[in-house]
Amino acid sequence: MNPALKLVAQRLALGILLLFLVSILIFVGTIILPGDVAQSILGQSATPEALANLREELGLNEPALQRYLNWLGGLLQGDLGTALTNGQDIAASLGGRLKNTLFLAFWAAIVSVPLAIFLGLLAVRYRERWPDKLISAVTLASISIPEFLIGYVLMYFIGVKLGWAPTVATIHDGMSLGQKLNTIALPVSVLTLVVLAHMMRMTRAAILNVMQSAYIETAELKGLSMFLIIWKHAFPNSIAPIVNVVMLNLAYLVVGVVVIEVVFTYPGMGQYLVDHVSKRDIPVVQACGLIFAAVYIGLNMVADIVSILANPRLRHPK
């Protein structure tokens, strides 16, 4: 078997195993949290009988292992359970939220990833000269300012003063794609500014590292132009580290956008999770945790697989 395929299969198997372990961790984590769900649903004034009834109804009296197996069995069939607080099916109410989060993350990625890589290439081309320093300074500044502050500043200038984009990014299914994109323009800009620096600097560092290689000198001595050397000879050899940092940032775009969602009242997963954490709605928290974990593991797995496939030694063994 081709070693690259073997490694890819290994990564996939490891990813699934990891997800399984994470599910145990999430379940155990939510059990050992202090407090009682029934109590928090019914409030301080609940009678002991009512509490006992509710516990029975929610299955909280069963042994933990049994509850875990029930939960896992449901998960494998796509059943995330029902929310304790409002009795709704979690999968149904989460579905729309997840779609919105992925929508926002997707468009932020479409803008930020090519831009970051292009700026990285540009910084290498003009290394240690003013374009490089300007790019570094601006991206570093944008990552250093808290994202909610950038959010409010953009909202004030672009949304309120200039009126180019709406300040509230609430989208719904009735909107056309164009309307949606206009609505999320501001959060996408903020997210881009937040993730740009990390990816751009990593691209720059990875390519500069490769630029030290003897084969870059060979390319220079072939009389190739600098940009051609960077694009054709250096970039293909720096794909692995670049993909790794890109995937980490994509994961952040899905998992870490809760602040932005709150600032722009965007109906995504982050808001939904925060709402239910405060209500101690354990099944929702578990479901969200598991989805976030799956996104992280999945994207990192993709990064691993791309790195493996980008390595000619593994793709074309002797």
Binding site: S213, A214, Y215, E217, T218, A219, E220, L221, K222, G223, L224, H233, P236, N237, A310, P312, R313
Partner: peptide, 30 residues
């Protein structure tokens, strides 16, 4: 001039060939 009139053979071909590209593409590139 470089790669056209004057060309270069280095000490370590192993390091001077780009590992991500086929030999033919590199030999004919210039």
């Amino acid at each position: 001039l470089r790669g056209g009139e004057v060309t270069y053979v280095s000490q370590s071909a192993a390091a001077s060939f780009n590992p991500a590209k086929k030999i033919m593409d590199q030999v004919t590139e210039a």
